[in-house]
Write a protein that binds this DNA or RNA. Sequence first.
DNA 1: TGGCAAAAAGACCTTTATGTCCATAATAGC
DNA 2: GCTATTATGGACATAAAGGTCTTTTTGCCA
Lengths: 144, 144
Amino acid sequence: MISQTAEYALRAMVFLAMQKSPAVGHEIAAATKVPPGYLSKLMQQLVKSKLVNSQRGIGGGFVLAKAPVDISILDVVNAVDPIEKITSCPLDIMSHGLNLCPLHKRLSLATAQVEQAFAQSNLSELVEESRSPLCTSVPLESGG
Amino acid sequence: MISQTAEYALRAMVFLAMQKSPAVGHEIAAATKVPPGYLSKLMQQLVKSKLVNSQRGIGGGFVLAKAPVDISILDVVNAVDPIEKITSCPLDIMSHGLNLCPLHKRLSLATAQVEQAFAQSNLSELVEESRSPLCTSVPLESGG
DNA sequence: TGGCAAAAAGACCTTTATGTCCATAATAGC
DNA sequence: GCTATTATGGACATAAAGGTCTTTTTGCCA
């Protein structure tokens, strides 16, 4: 569904959302089980996207650039691995008599739904809900 | 959102859904603009998944194994590039005091929504709707 | 039965994603 | 200014996805 890269970035951002003071790279990497060298790349992207501020030297590290409530899952995903929308058919085979558009309309719609869901969740929610140990066994409520 | 592979497979299946008689590989490849050699691999997977029947020799080719109405987008996607569901956190870092579960709950939910959308569309719909030239300019209705 | 047309199978290559490593630059404390 | 600490940047390595090519197998039909 999302790339490994996006997954890593989200973990790091959730971790940062739980921190008061700056967290250094290796600390984030250890806590989130992300390869340290790779995380460093991702952090750079998050900094460039203005989601995170960085500070070098002793006492430095990374902090969120905004309040957790103002950072959505979509913000994070788009920072490291943008969701690409289908705006037109990838082929011009319409003109060949083959009609793929209904297909791509559905794919677009599915993408839009995911985007919307990601846009509606913010880091604050993710941290707030973290009280109960949902992780191990809850099978996820798929319905409505 | 979906892989290139899944996209190719869907194109091929839509094409087959529009055919009466068996279509040979290079014909499908040409019509759907899928690399011929690669398509051949995908067709094999679709055959193994019982979505398509194949016939060698003169007059042979590929045909759908069921009525288009009985084949969903999800069937096709899963045949070539299964959507992987998150059933538990990818880490055991819950026990470390870092709570990622709300995050993965949301990712799971998004995946489930996509699956549901894909499960609800069948090839018949895609072919039926193909009358009007939707492809070029419709920006997709993202809302509800 | 021979020959041709087609799928099946698999070896191989290319590109992209993921991951590692090291040198460099900036910052704080001394 | 010196040193420790930290992020930054880029080169490099590995893994996975995507794509090409050749050979083998199968079925049809003359």
